[in-house]
Design a protein around this nucleic acid. Structure first.
Lengths: 218, 218
DNA sequence: ATTGAAAATCTTGTATACAAAATTCTTGAC
DNA sequence: GTCAAGAATTTTGTATACAAGATTTTCAAT
């Protein structure tokens, strides 16, 4: 890996931000964090630099770096962007996907369904992620894949919010099946459309997302 | 702006990378750069961190950071991704664009055409950029807009290569007109299609790009 | 001459020291 | 009591010092 301290610290801080250990606007005090991590300010600064670069925090020149949690508007924008990028991946994948990959998507869906029946939420998230990541991969564009993974990762902490709606998981699985069907038939636009609709935040999901945000803001 | 030295140094280094002052694989020696910029290693390290974060360089743990110029494959992937993102912006913009924005696009096109006739390449690039940036804006999604701008900026140094083809500028303008027409009619898919085709690298452009790369590699 | 090991050198990563800027606190005037 | 100006204190940004790991060089043995 990279420079030992600085990077593990950055990972830890990211995790803390994702799990809500900080509130929007909180200042990340270098000296305090240095003491907290039993380390000098130098690796802390490098870690903070990484957070700023990935948009999790904001740096004001001679003032410090502050946590920057996305508000409702930005969150919707990020989800819309994710939906569009997934749509793009789907459109490209419909033309490029291989037979083993289709089998793999089917397998992921089967495991997803099993996880729902078993009530195993962790397994569900894991297989759901595998499904989506596989589609990014099958777009056949490593750069696009990286971008998709980046955004997917960024949205991870917010994705759980929107899956709590009753029956959402079952509906989600039906959508997965439709997506695979479109990919299998090599229907680019239908695949794109199905993925966009699957990822987009709308209706009940929207309300859930907002109330989740409101709760997190307290 | 941000921390004075570190950020101006990062900007300078980015510019140097873009203008080809470094070759792929070159090591960015901290002490050498420190001497060169008349500064200590600390701001250099922060600047290098920024380069690594934006993908312009690669960091190998206890070895240093190295310039990482995209090869032909990655470049094509980046252009394909750009084409798709522009397509997305166009699709969204077709539903959201305002009348003044359409007028602005027309204005940019007029100035573009004038620049071609005057042989003013700089003006052409400027107005062409204004055209595209305006479409990103009119997608009505600030997050997506930032992503589009980021990638557009990243590809800037390579874009000039592909515009040298004889008659390409005139054809490009015709495509711009078609794009505006689709946006004006509120035809999302046609706008998306037109933008994808406009940005995509294909045929003669492809050869130009490759030979440009080959030349740059010497 | 080639190969291998050990020492010397170089380079990164971290800690500490210093400087400049910003914020906070104090003090005085109204 | 409020407000403002200036001093004191924090805090960031930069420089330097030190430590650990990596690379290169040296030198001997085969």
């Amino acid at each position: 890996m990279s420079e030992r301290r600085a990077d593990t610290i950055a990972d830890t801080l990211e995790e803390m931000i994702f799990t809500g250990a900080f509130n929007d606007g909180d200042r990340l005090d270098e000296t305090r964090l240095a003491a907290q991590f039993n380390v000098s300010r130098t690796p802390i600064r490098e870690a903070l630099g990484r957070l700023v670069a990935s948009g999790l925090a904001e740096q004001i020149p001679r003032r410090g770096v502050f946590i920057r949690q996305p508000g409702p508007v930005e969150l919707l924008e990020m989800f819309e962007t994710m939906a569009e990028i997934e749509g793009v991946c789907g459109r490209l994948a419909a033309r490029r996907i291989s037979e083993p990959a289709l089998a793999d998507l089917d397998a992921a869906n089967a495991l997803c369904t099993a996880a729902i029946e078993a009530g195993d939420t962790d397994a569900y998230y894991r297989e759901n992620e595998r499904f989506h990541h596989r589609i990014y991969r099958e777009a056949g564009n490593a750069f696009l894949e990286q971008e998709a993974l980046r955004l997917h990762r960024r949205l991870k902490p917010f994705r759980r919010m929107q899956l709590r709606v009753r029956g959402r998981m079952a509906q989600s699985m039906a959508e997965h099946e439709a997506i695979v069907a479109a990919l299998r038939e090599g229907a680019p636009e239908r695949a794109a459309q199905a993925l966009r609709a699957h990822v987009a935040v709308q209706g009940e999901k929207f309300h859930r997302l907002l109330s989740g945000l409101r709760r997190a803001a307290e």
